[in-house]
Design a protein around this nucleic acid. Sequence first.
DNA 1: TATTGTTATACTCTATAACTATA
DNA 2: TATAGTTATAGAGTATAACAATA
Lengths: 150, 150
Amino acid sequence: MSAPPRRDLAAMIVPLGRALTAAELPVLREHGLTMWAYSVLLRLDERPLRSQAALADAIGADKTRIIDVLSDLGDRGLISRTPDPADRRVRLLALTPQGRRVRDAAQAAIQLREERLLARHLTPAQRTALLDALQVLDALPAEAVSDPEP
Amino acid sequence: MSAPPRRDLAAMIVPLGRALTAAELPVLREHGLTMWAYSVLLRLDERPLRSQAALADAIGADKTRIIDVLSDLGDRGLISRTPDPADRRVRLLALTPQGRRVRDAAQAAIQLREERLLARHLTPAQRTALLDALQVLDALPAEAVSDPEP
DNA sequence: TATTGTTATACTCTATAACTATA
DNA sequence: TATAGTTATAGAGTATAACAATA
């Protein structure tokens, strides 16, 4: 049983994710965002989201962890957090127009860097193939990746 | 400036890496390995490696963090740790035959799961294209990803 | 004095538990 | 009583600083 001809998927993907994250951080800082704040802005799309717990779950965070993030984003007018009239325990979360502008600007800067990286090291066909395959795997629920029954 | 048609690379890759890691953990546990121990066995190839600091750096760990991992692997006979006769401060690290057997068995099990996942959701051509592109990016030094000068 | 490995300490991030306010 | 959000506390993981041995 000799060494396989390729490295493990995780062994390639996890360090790549770390490097991409490291590349994002200074860009986000320029836009006044932390990684968690950016995750929140990305997830909060046009339509409001009901409850902070749902948001936390959606971005893989603990509900107690995003509270400071949400208050800060609210204080800066990037998101709105209004009590649901139907049930005043829950907060309806939504992007403000300014929040959408900040999110779009940050995302454009990040994807510009990403595209430069891909263009430098991959052929256009390889770039497309990579993104296609990643989008397929990205669309899977996490359990489909973690527990693939034979 | 509207929302881009694709998600950020990092936003797809980081959660995928987390899910793949979660998929590995039970397999590693069956083979009596932690993630750090597995990283060490993967990096310690046929030829011995000079110094623990070099190993730590190679697997993206802190040198103080792998000490317990190395003592444990040494106690179990999976690696050898002999002082360098030329400079008795440094330890020469190498896989033992048993260590290589454990590493190969664990890696085979992991890659079997990975291949099942890819086969279920990607076409053979997509699988090959994904692995090719990942191997290109994996071969880059981390700085090439983090600091792509324009 | 400088360096390898080690130990001890502090810090950051994350999760758990306890609390409040609504229902 | 049950749930959403919040606060306070504890735990895991990680990095920093101090130490012993060798050069």
